[in-house]
Design a protein around this nucleic acid. Sequence first.
DNA 1: AAAGTGGTTTGATATAAATCAAAAAGCATG
DNA 2: CATGCTTTTTGATTTATATCAAACCACTTT
Lengths: 241, 241
Amino acid sequence: MLSPVLNYPATTACSSCNLAELCLPVDLSAREMHRLDELSPLKRTFSRSDYLYRSGDKFRSLFAIHSGSFKTQILHEDGREQVTGFQMAGEIIGLDAISTDIHACEAVSLEDSVVCELPFNKLETLSREIPSLQRHLHKIMSREIVRDQGIMLLLGSMRAEERLAAFLLNLSQRFAARNLSATRFQLRMSRQEIGSYLGLKLETVSRAFSHFQEDGIISVKVRAIEIKDLAALKACLNSSR
Amino acid sequence: MLSPVLNYPATTACSSCNLAELCLPVDLSAREMHRLDELSPLKRTFSRSDYLYRSGDKFRSLFAIHSGSFKTQILHEDGREQVTGFQMAGEIIGLDAISTDIHACEAVSLEDSVVCELPFNKLETLSREIPSLQRHLHKIMSREIVRDQGIMLLLGSMRAEERLAAFLLNLSQRFAARNLSATRFQLRMSRQEIGSYLGLKLETVSRAFSHFQEDGIISVKVRAIEIKDLAALKACLNSSR
DNA sequence: AAAGTGGTTTGATATAAATCAAAAAGCATG
DNA sequence: CATGCTTTTTGATTTATATCAAACCACTTT
C-alpha cells in the first residue's frame, strides 16, 4: 500500500490553507480577505527529494510552505552546487525567479511536504488593490535580502565552528517561532547539505558537531540534536579569529 | 577653494535626473511619466567615505545612484565587517531596510557620488497605480536576491583566484553595460575592501592579482586594471578544485 | 624635496580546513 | 536478521589561505 502522502491528491483547492495567517500574515478587512480568495491557491504535496521547481523552469508562482521543509540550491556549470537555504513551514520560496521570469535555483523537498502555490500575476494584481498585502510582499522580499547578506557575513568571515553555531542557533530560533522546541529537534538535511550551505566539507561539519558534543554544548545522535548550553553556543559566535 | 562637488548644493530638486531612463527604466505613457514627478526625488552629493546611511538608521527612501559608486557593509558585534556589495551608477540601494524599517547595513561612498533619493512610501503608492512600475520594483528586489545568492556560491565554493576572477568579470560586465571599457578600468575600492567582499585577506587578494599578472591575464598598476585575456579570466572560473 | 602616511606587494611561517582513507553506524531490503 | 548501501565519524596527511613581518610605492603635507 502506498503511503498516505502518496495517496493524497497531488493538487487540490487550498481551502484549509489559512493564507492570511500562515502564508501571508496580514491584517485585512473582511472584504479584503474575500478578495484574497481570488488567489485560489492550490495545495501540492511532495515526498523527500522531489523537486518543487528546477533551475531554468518558467516562473509562474511563489510557493508558501504549508508543512515540511525544502532546500534551495544553485548549480554551477562545472557541477558544483551551493545550497542557498533551508526553508520550513510558513516561509515563501521562489522569489529569485521574479527578476528574469526563470527560476535561478532549484527547490528540493527534504521530507514529506505540502506547499501552497500562489500565482504571481494574481498576487501582483491583488497587492495593487490591498496596500497591506503590497507592503507585506515587499517586506518578504527584503527579508530574503537581509537573510542572504547574513549568510554572506557567515561565509566571508566566520570559521567552521562559528558557522555551525550560527546555523544551529538560526534553526533553534525558527523552531521556537513555530512553537516547537528550541533545544531539541531533528535535522532534515545531511552533513553534506549542511556543509554546502556553510561553505564547508561534510567531514568538517561532522568534526564540528563532535567537538561541540565533547564540550557539552550539544548532544548529537546523527540527526537528532539537543542544545544543552544555548549560552555557550551563542558565545561561539562572538569568538572571532 | 572648495572642489566643484563640495560647492554643489547638498540637496536639490532632481529635475535633470532622468528617472525613467536611469533609475527606473520602465516603459510609461506620457500620463504615467507625469505621475512619476510626484516622487520629486532629491539629489544629494557625497564625497569619498561619506555615509549614505548607517546601520540602524530609520528607513525612508531607496537611493538610485546617479554617478559615482558606493560600498555596502554589515557590521558584526565583535567589530568584524563584511562588504556585501559595490554599487555603481544606475543601481538601487537600500532594499534591505524595507523588511524592518531600519537599515540593516551601511552604505559608504567610494568616490565623489550623486544619488537620487526615492521616498519609499511614494514609490509604493505610485507602484499601486502603475503596474509596470510595480513589476519593475519587484524585479529590482528579486535581482538583488539573485545577486546575493551568486555571492553565496562564490564564497561557499570557489578558491581565491576564482573569486577574484569572478569579481573582475562582474566589474567588466557592469562597466560594459555603461558604455565604459570592459577591459580597462580603475578600481574604486582597496585590496582590503575587495578582500572583505570576497571572504579573503588583503594579502591573498594582492597575491591573486600578482599571479594573474604573471600569467599575462591582466595588467595591474595598483588600482588601474587592464584585462588582457578575457577568455583566460573566464576559464579561471570553471577550474574547480 | 623631505617626511610622513596609508595602501600594496612580497616573503616566511603557521594553521584551519580539505583531502584521502577506512571504520562505524544507520537504515532499507530480501 | 543477515545483506548491502548510504551516511557519518574518526584518523592521518596535505594544502590553501591566514598570519606575521618587512619592504615598497603612491600620495599628501610641510
